[in-house]
């Protein structure tokens, strides 16, 4: 395969693999804890964060990290204190952060080609520096997940019971939001703001269809994500299609195949018939 000789393709494969693993792992928590909409909201908020980076001349990854953490925590705080419902809080930030980004771009002179890359992803334009950032932040996220594995599992499954037992359920919830925010930010260069939430949700949701234990859901989610990113990358090269979109559509295909063919679905049919 001569395409593997290209540096840009090698980098894209490494980036796709790292992002795939990371999104699948965090996606398991997102899907099981019902954080899909928050994940999508944070992804869109990163547009505002990236625009701040372009406006100030700072590397957009760092401004997006700070901005997304702030938005994630704000959504959590607003809904926790009972002021508004969680989905309302997401809806407010979803729109306003995008608007902030558009406003900032408007103030900058001329159209910025780089910003388009953040919106729709440009996995083939991943730089060496991008890779190092993805690797460093990604390993950090995975280390936290491993360290707090049982605590994150407990608050995801049953936050109230975790709190009764004495775990700091609230802090762990914010830790989870932070990890999701960081995952989103380092993924946007690869699949883009618009599509990152799909990579966060879809492989884990597909794995959910097949899994009867938490670990198997995580392992299968990683497998599906890798098939999507690596497979989607090759497909987009051969078919000459947009890489981010191809990756996401491939993962969606896996999800629908899982929903149709998984034993969980067959079992549900049986139980409906017998009741």
């Amino acid at each position: 395969m001569e395409i593997l000789n290209y540096t840009f393709m090698q980098r894209a494969l490494v980036a796709g693999t790292l992002i795939g693993v990371l999104c699948a792992v965090m996606g398991v928590y997102v899907v099981l804890r019902g954080l899909s909409f928050i994940g999508a909201g944070i992804a869109h908020a990163s547009f505002g964060g990236v625009a701040i980076g372009f406006a100030t001349g700072v590397n957009p990854v760092w401004t997006a990290v700070i901005f997304c953490l702030g938005v994630g925590w704000s959504i959590g705080l607003l809904s926790r204190k009972g002021r508004v419902k969680e989905d309302t809080a997401v809806g407010i930030f979803f729109a306003s952060t995008m608007a902030l980004g558009i406003l900032l771009i408007g103030l900058m002179k001329g159209y910025n080609q780089d910003l388009f890359g953040y919106l729709f992803g440009s996995i083939l334009a991943v730089t060496r520096q991008d890779l190092w950032i993805i690797l460093a932040v990604g390993l950090g996220i995975l280390a936290v997940v491993v360290l707090f594995f049982k605590e994150l599992l407990f608050v995801t499954f049953d936050p109230e019971m975790a709190q009764v037992g004495g775990l700091p359920a609230e802090k762990l919830y914010f830790l989870l939001l932070s990890l999701v925010a960081l995952t989103v930010v380092i993924s946007i260069k690869v699949v883009g703001i618009v599509l990152v939430s799909a990579l966060l949700i879809t492989p884990a949701a597909a794995a959910h269809q097949w899994s009867e234990s938490f670990r198997s859901m995580m392992a299968l989610g990683i497998f599906f994500a890798l098939v999507s990113t690596v497979g989607g990358l090759f497909l987009s090269y051969w078919l000459d299609t947009a890489s981010g979109a191809t990756i996401v559509l491939l993962s969606t295909l896996i999800f629908f195949a899982s929903a149709v063919f998984s034993p969980r679905r067959r079992r549900r049919k049986v139980s409906v018939a017998s009741s």
Binding site: K150, L153, M161, A162, G165, H208
Partner: peptide, 19 residues
């Protein structure tokens, strides 16, 4: 409780020890 949560009975019981 979310009944679709992928968890075996013994894993759910072990959670009682987590704290």
């Amino acid at each position: 409780v979310d009944l679709t949560f992928p968890l075996r009975a013994k894993e759910a019981v072990l959670m009682g020890r987590y704290a």
